[in-house]
Design a protein around this nucleic acid. Sequence first.
DNA 1: CTGAAAGCGCTTACAG
DNA 2: CTGAAAGCGCTTACAG
Lengths: 335, 335
Amino acid sequence: MGTVKGQNKKRRVTIKDVALYANVGVGTVSRVLNNSPHVTLETKQKVLAAIRELGYTPNPYARYLSVGTSNLVTVIIPEMKGDFYQMLLSGIDEVLVKHGYSSILYPLYNNRRYEALKKSSELLLSTDGIIVDAVSVDGVLKDLLNHNTPTVCVEQESEMFDSVMVDNYYGGVIVGDYFADLEMEIFVVTHRKSHELESTVFDERLEGFQASLEKKGRNIDKIYYVPLDWESAFEVARRIFSRHKRCAIFTTTDYLAVPIIEVARTVGLNVGKDVRVCGFDDLPIAQVLGITTIKQPIHEMGKIAAEMLIKRIKGKAKDKVAKVILKPELVIRET
Amino acid sequence: MGTVKGQNKKRRVTIKDVALYANVGVGTVSRVLNNSPHVTLETKQKVLAAIRELGYTPNPYARYLSVGTSNLVTVIIPEMKGDFYQMLLSGIDEVLVKHGYSSILYPLYNNRRYEALKKSSELLLSTDGIIVDAVSVDGVLKDLLNHNTPTVCVEQESEMFDSVMVDNYYGGVIVGDYFADLEMEIFVVTHRKSHELESTVFDERLEGFQASLEKKGRNIDKIYYVPLDWESAFEVARRIFSRHKRCAIFTTTDYLAVPIIEVARTVGLNVGKDVRVCGFDDLPIAQVLGITTIKQPIHEMGKIAAEMLIKRIKGKAKDKVAKVILKPELVIRET
DNA sequence: CTGAAAGCGCTTACAG
DNA sequence: CTGAAAGCGCTTACAG
């Protein structure tokens, strides 16, 4: 079965081997591989048999080189904890799949992964398109992104690429308007962008909140900055409730609201009355725990991003950079 | 800059253009691209300048075709919620990066993504190696995986590939031994594998638990099956504690323990006394909430998987399929 | 319907 | 140190 040519190194079986084995030209093999209608059933079966016998698998890189398209889209996200990214990605996938594309994920949740991306950026970023959530395309990713490959940004603005985002500042304003009338101390639990891979959305939400409060003659009594994990949020929550039995807390994401509520309830406070909590995002968990929050259309945002990208890929987009800004809204629940 | 040859379609600038522009051969351009030491500083700078002027970016697919290696490893996981995968991936990355590889992630959290994987499997799975967590390689992925590309399995056994996992059955046994002495009703909250993309670890843990209990003459009073999300776990928790004020609950992952404890505490039960809860995994959240649990070395498991894979890639592994089974251990905390 | 051949954009011995 | 050329494994007009 096919003379091994001299060396005993395993040589990959190629389309040529198949052609030889099936007694046809490589073009014909390629045609059955690509389901071309212009092949006799007979030859087709001959080729298929050869493929099976030889255990042939096509080399996609060669194909790509030839046709110049991978049907792959790279999605870059800053981390993968929580429900947010799964929701976003499912929106993206919904439209991508419809157009025959698949997505690969690249979470940039620490510096090591950033370094790895830089090293292998070429292959990872040479897909047909790129969607970047939160991680700054005009900043850290600037030198990695190729201006010629279609790119769209989510949760951030960009001078170079299309973008879709929720008006985070405005979301903060809504919460401020809501909290301003409450006769209690006002705290914020948020995450401050601490290194360049992180998102700025939390800061924007905080700014809007602050501005709205000021306008109404109130101010934030204290801001607690925490890393984006529950361990830290739990600690802060314990600290808060050991001193304060009555307060309103704005957590700039529902993710951080969960521990706050857990601790408040554990120490016996009446959440919704003595303690008021407002989150952001409207993650599934917010519905379960009855968290008052700012709803943003995550799934929708993913769909829009993918649609913008497809447009760019197909060359149907305008030259000008497009920008879609979605409005968030307040959802009042028990907390 | 550079005459457009006839048509006005944007043609990608290639190594040839650079060579022409810099007045050198393509081989030389390639050499500076790959940091070959055999280039004069002078020509190197000439080439670099040309690259900059022309805005050249190399085509990685062509490179791959030529050298036959991508330095990329594909990691397939069943979902991305919770801390587990980030821990696993960081273990994998730690050793991968050391060897010059980068990882791309493919979460298979729903059927659409599975279909997309099938469609684009060639490119996605033609990296230098593959690590598959939980999703059955001998089952659903069987026809997608190429026997020639190095592959290692995590959290599952395989007849074809190397694997590393924790002894989940034994972990269940430990919990059983621990619960058998408790004089209260025994419940289980777990997830049952409901479609083929999901993991079987929960079932294995449950089996071990059941076996151990039986041996000691006890049995599970009720098993609650839930989807792997908090929404459902919260519901079940409310159901349980509306009827039972005293019980021991084994949740087959810490992830499911969180809502249980939250609800128990909310309704005023003394968790650790009236209500006992034991989780599985020892996720960070388990430490924060003081959850008694079965600790499994997730990060370590990732490292081992990557090391096995590297061995296969370098051809240094034995022919026989390797299997590493790690032992879990009980960590007693407040609950 | 099918084969021979050119081409995709790189890398890498091989000469010089 | 550097250039010309072969080769990586496909696809796709072009003839037939």
